[in-house]
Write a protein that binds this DNA or RNA. Structure first.
Lengths: 227, 227
DNA sequence: TGTTTTCATTGATCGAAATCAAGTCGGACT
DNA sequence: AGTCCGACTTGATTTCGATCAATGAAAACA
């Protein structure tokens, strides 16, 4: 991490709206703010590595963090992608264990970090924090289950379609939106090679999905759902 | 659940050694024991279904529980398999949400259940419980990440080999052990069709793995690791 | 503005595993 | 023991997506 600093007004604002802190009582928020440090990461920098002793809890303020695991010969498999407001699941290790995966900045990112020992300490006195952590983890476990099942049940075009649907404002109305990150990143998140994502998009074109650059337009969400 | 009862001496014993309760202080253990109910499930019975409002926390006392998700046309994808002592991860939903998956008894099973509202209540007063829940979930998230990465990085024979290695007492020495459940269940857990598991076993035969029924013998764990 | 580098698409090929279809084994039961 | 039924295995086929290779499009940079 390049430089560390106390959170300024803007960072405090973002932190307050983040998933974890938003459900806490004022005193717990204050206690967490007290121990927060802000750091920025240039693109591609590692935040932590799989197997390292876990000593920090991290929350994304801006940018995207890619969390992946390595196999012996260096290939990478993304297991989760975190954006602004997200607590990085792999860093919630309250019992002195090690990080289960590697976290890397997918683009320049701003991160809040909390010393895990102190978090544990606060959680020991303030149950709302411990419960908030458990809730966040439960939500993440649920996402992980969904990803695992999705991988096993659906083809690449189906996974892409489901991802697009999940990120568009519902309803049967035509929608446009911007992908918030590179396609290669999206491919990784969906467990696909970039080529497979490309082909999926080109197949979906005949189902009313138009993509140019990061701009996505969906003619009929309902039709997509039935692919 | 067929019948519900207060935990007897044997069930209390098992519960005390279970992952969740084993790390709690005596008072929290007592509070949890207070609200525990024991039930047994015949094979194939559902404990809860995906999408149902989550009102209970479950812990496996004996037998195996299969947790899976369904796709629209009824195909199933196993996301986790829980055995004696395990807290069923998909049932840890502290914030009034819904179960993220379906839990089914893979064989006759004994289950401890705790009313979630009361668990939340106790956790609000006793942080050690909340922290224990968070730790359990963190461990499960880590497993889920490992499964996801394993799926994406390794072939069927590799996944089977890794599973066997993880379940044999380490060391470079020849080992024998019994699979604790049916092969079709193992196949599901590894994200494979039963046929693929069969073929993986038959390929591993040439690498010193012998399987007859549920009996597995491994000549050289080290060699297996390098497949 | 042009140059360079990274990212995305498209094509061709290959390999892994799902699926479909028999067949075999093994245990439970009469 | 014989029979039955579910679990497992084996074979043939097909589909999907990874990989390799080459091109095309966009950003980033000077």
């Amino acid at each position: 991490m390049n430089r560390l600093m106390k959170p300024g007004a803007r960072e405090r604002e973002t932190l307050l709206n983040a998933g974890l802190l938003s459900v806490l009582g004022v005193e717990s928020v204050a206690a967490m703010m007290e121990i927060a440090a802000i750091g920025n990461l240039p693109a591609r920098q590692m935040l932590f590595r799989e197997g390292e002793p876990a000593d920090m809890l991290h929350c994304v303020l801006s940018g995207y963090m890619r969390v992946y695991k390595l196999d012996p010969d260096g290939r990478e498999a993304d297991v989760e992608l975190y954006g602004p407001g997200d607590l990085i699941g792999a860093s919630v290790v309250l019992d002195g264990g090690r990080y289960a995966a590697t976290a890397q900045a997918a683009e320049p990112a701003l991160i809040a970090r909390f010393d895990l020992k102190r978090v544990r300490d606060i959680a020991g006195r303030r149950p709302d924090l411990a419960i908030a952590l458990a809730s966040a983890l439960s939500a993440q476990l649920s996402r992980a289950f969904a990803n695992l099942a999705d991988d096993r049940l659906h083809t690449a075009p189906q996974r892409v379609a489901r991802h697009l649907l999940a990120h568009c404002p519902v309803e049967g109305k035509p929608t446009s939106f911007r992908l918030p990150y590179q396609k290669s990143l999206l491919a990784g998140k969906l467990g696909l090679a970039p080529e497979a994502l490309s082909r999926a998009f080109s197949l979906l074109r005949s189902h009313g999905v138009n993509v140019r650059g990061r701009l996505v337009h969906i003619d009929d969400p309902e039709a997509l759902r039935r692919i």
